[in-house]
Write a protein that binds this DNA or RNA. Sequence first.
DNA 1: AATCTAGGCTCAGAAAATCTAAGTCTTGCG
DNA 2: CGCAAGACTTAGATTTTCTGAGCCTAGATT
Lengths: 291, 291
Amino acid sequence: MPVSPPRPKDLPLTALRAFEAAARLNGFAAAAQELGVTPGAVTAHIKQLEATLGAPLFTRTPRGVRLTTLGQQALPHFTQAFDALGQAVNDLRAAAAPRIVHIATLPAIAQLWLSPRLPALRAAAPDITVSITALEIPPNLKRSPYDLSLFYSDAAEGRLTQDTLFPVCAPSLAARLKTPQDIAHHPCLSDATWSDDWQLWAQTLPDPPHIPQGPTFSLYALAVEECVNGAGLLIGHETLIANHLKDGRLIAPFPQRLTLPTGLRLWSDRPLRPGTAARFVADWLRRNPIG
Amino acid sequence: MPVSPPRPKDLPLTALRAFEAAARLNGFAAAAQELGVTPGAVTAHIKQLEATLGAPLFTRTPRGVRLTTLGQQALPHFTQAFDALGQAVNDLRAAAAPRIVHIATLPAIAQLWLSPRLPALRAAAPDITVSITALEIPPNLKRSPYDLSLFYSDAAEGRLTQDTLFPVCAPSLAARLKTPQDIAHHPCLSDATWSDDWQLWAQTLPDPPHIPQGPTFSLYALAVEECVNGAGLLIGHETLIANHLKDGRLIAPFPQRLTLPTGLRLWSDRPLRPGTAARFVADWLRRNPIG
DNA sequence: AATCTAGGCTCAGAAAATCTAAGTCTTGCG
DNA sequence: CGCAAGACTTAGATTTTCTGAGCCTAGATT
């Protein structure tokens, strides 16, 4: 009879992380998104926690969940602990590979804004390796392994550029466009995640033209490419197509522009100490906001 | 082409915990013990971490491991973070079940010291549930789900009793024992984890008798039972056999006693706030140290 | 010197945790 | 009233994590 006590396993860390995310974001679906899993997984984790605790952490409503008092008391402690853990991981990662800078950004920004700048950046700092991860949603920098995050945002801090909206097309097509009303006769390309762009722009005109629904792309860079190939008009984000305008692959046929409240924002969560690679890259990008 | 970015998974929490334990305890084997897994599991975790970091955390020597500079820098942050997490878990558990007190203790203490006191404790506080977990090794209270820990220790803080060592036996056997020299003719029961006890005691005598090796038990309570049944002499820990002596099931045939530097110690890691169940139980046990 | 021992490593297979997919349920909203 | 959002459920797949047994090295022991 070996007395090897089947030690009561500690609460599983994964479940605790799920709880923290769900509590902080006020919903299992949002938590699932942040954690990169399906909502079902989060449900299971929370249930497991509640079962071993013997008390509910959330009250369920058909529209979502709400923290119980118990959950409310616990949340801040867990948030702090996981933040500290994330911080420790990031510090460790930075110490282990001090000349690698991890940037999280939108796929479109990665391809159309960041990528064109990389050769010059590499030339300016040959010893720095830039690692780019394309994400649809800005990550929680306190938790994720990124040094910098580059997304559209309406927050002022860290803003690199404004963004303006206006139609663009291939030069061959531009020749046939006199007024915005002519848009009605050509396919209007758009990006799936920015499906409102055309309407937003059109509504700034005194006489909004009809916008024929063209192909929709899940990658903005793909839409740009199609546009260059003459597939139709694209509603352009200035920050993303500046290079194409400059070298003439795309042309803006109309003068009307809509300035958006959002703009490209480069952001970090902890202080970028001078001399670090991340600091250098951030400073360099800020000095070179236009292509 | 769905751009569902196969998000670079965060470092696995389990591996980080393994690193923290291994670094803090200065060895994979010790970490494995604390975590309740085999050393191979720890090895694998550390290797995984080092692989994704691209840098070693430990330098391996055939006698053990030593932290690299990188590991040394990282350790305190991780220790803090995991302590905070453990704290949060414990607080949560306490809030979820405020009238349950979890005690970790040696199997022997659980059966021979704690268990006999439980009826009176229950009578004193019927609403409190005491949960006892038997462990061979004192747990890390900052991490494990226990409110109180009850082990032998030479630390002064929280000491309940001293412990003394002396042979005991069933009354029938005692009749045939005149002097310690008579021990040589009877089997000497012992506990596997306290294999030195007989020698320790014998060496306090002017003329140490020969101690015949008797059966060894992995559970002290089992040895006590056998002793009661007349199987031989047992080297007794006063704290554990006080009840048997009091009601005559066991007898101490010789006056020689060895006072040990260790004693029963009841300990908690965070402050026991007045009014909590854990505080009540701790106070009660301190007021009733002898059976 | 030969052996022993502590501590880590390796590898295959097993066990457990975790995740997904697809369908269900409920209810506030248009 | 139908729809959409959000959570739940279940079965099965996948990934993580663990074990077990044997191997390896170098200090300690004899």
